[in-house]
């Protein structure tokens, strides 16, 4: 059985300028120990999907219109707050893009690290501090016994992200959601952090949802990838299949616009136009306006995620009909 099953999730933001359909019918499942990459550009709904699961959507203006997110038998979107609290931060943890703003600057690292253990009543203070120290060592912070008493500003960006990871993993969660955890970091530090997440995942056997806009990051880390566009999943497949035989025109275009895959000096492939305005209802496929292969039918009917081969589904009408 899957660890997490998300079904027809719709999260809308009701603003003065209209209803913003950030996530519009997203379904997926995640097995224990699996690594899932969610790829998309800004505004594609990849973060809002995960924030909805974690109950981090500010309501209002946000509202979860429909859907369910079943984690080990409990629907996180409909359960009682106490039930959600017993799961969040304990069995599901999250790390964020900016380690600078997601740590409390007024508290020593030690206090922040042991907080999840104390809140969930998993350890005494003394025990918690011992485990915090072990965790800091596990994420590769040298001289941890001294540094555990430091404040966040005394750490570099990469070190702070290590502290964030230590804090997220201290309760030994079954699922870690990582929202662009390396985007704010330098490449050499990014390599260190990716290596660390990979190692800890193998050690602890947890499932990981990795949100990123960088296809390169996904390729080494994830078992499966799903590509989002305009609040919907447009393609999902095993990492190898997605890179080798992308089917959806958006995935293909995204892959083609990576500079390192194109010969030097040649004009880069670009996707014309801009991402869709989600505050207006989109009829049919959200990518149709930028798609070279779009026809009148594409804006007529809502695309459906269709399985093309086992484990490989995509949402283009024309691909499903065998026209592309």
């Amino acid at each position: 059985m899957s660890l997490l099953t998300v079904n027809d999730l719709r999260t809308y933001f009701h603003t003065r300028n209209g209803v913003y359909r950030a996530v519009d019918g997203v379904s997926f499942a995640l097995d224990r120990g699996e690594t899932l990459g969610i790829v998309g550009e800004s505004g594609s709904g990849k973060s809002v999907t995960c924030y909805s699961i974690m109950g981090l959507i500010p309501q209002p203006p946000g509202r979860i219109e429909s859907g369910s997110a079943i984690f080990d038998g409990t629907d996180l979107l409909r359960c009682r707050p106490e039930e959600a609290r017993a799961i969040r931060g304990k069995r599901i943890s999250m790390i964020f893009q900016d380690p600078m703003t997601s740590l409390n600057p007024y508290l020593r690292i030690s206090e922040q690290l042991i907080e999840p253990l104390l809140i969930h009543g998993l350890a005494s203070r003394k025990d918690a501090l011992r485990r915090a120290l072990e965790m800091l060592e596990a994420v590769g912070i040298n001289d941890a016994a001294k540094r555990i008493h430091y404040y966040p500003h005394e750490f570099s960006g990469g070190m702070r992200q290590r502290v964030m990871i230590a804090m997220a993993l201290i309760t030994r969660p079954e699922l870690l959601i990582a929202d662009e955890p390396t985007t704010a970091l330098d490449v050499t530090v990014q390599a260190q952090i990716l290596e660390l997440i990979r190692r800890l995942q193998q050690e602890y056997g947890m499932a990981v949802i990795f949100i990123t806009h960088d296809l390169g990051v996904v390729s080494g880390l994830c078992d499966r990838v799903q590509v989002m566009y305009g609040g919907r999943i447009v393609e999902t497949a095993s990492t190898r299949t997605l890179f080798r035989t992308p089917l959806h025109p958006y995935t293909r275009a995204l892959q083609q616009s990576i500079p390192s895959l194109q010969p030097k000096g040649v004009e880069l492939f670009t996707i014309p136009g801009m991402p869709p305005d989600l505050s207006k209802p989109i009829s049919g496929c959200a990518f149709a306006a930028r798609c070279a292969a779009a026809t009148a039918r594409c804006t007529g009917a809502d695309p459906v995620l269709t399985e093309m081969s086992p484990g490989h589904a995509q949402a283009c009408l024309r691909v499903a009909a065998g026209e592309l």
Partner: peptide
Amino acid sequence: SAIPRPDP
């Protein structure tokens, strides 16, 4: 060597 390659 630190650049992630978009090829699994």
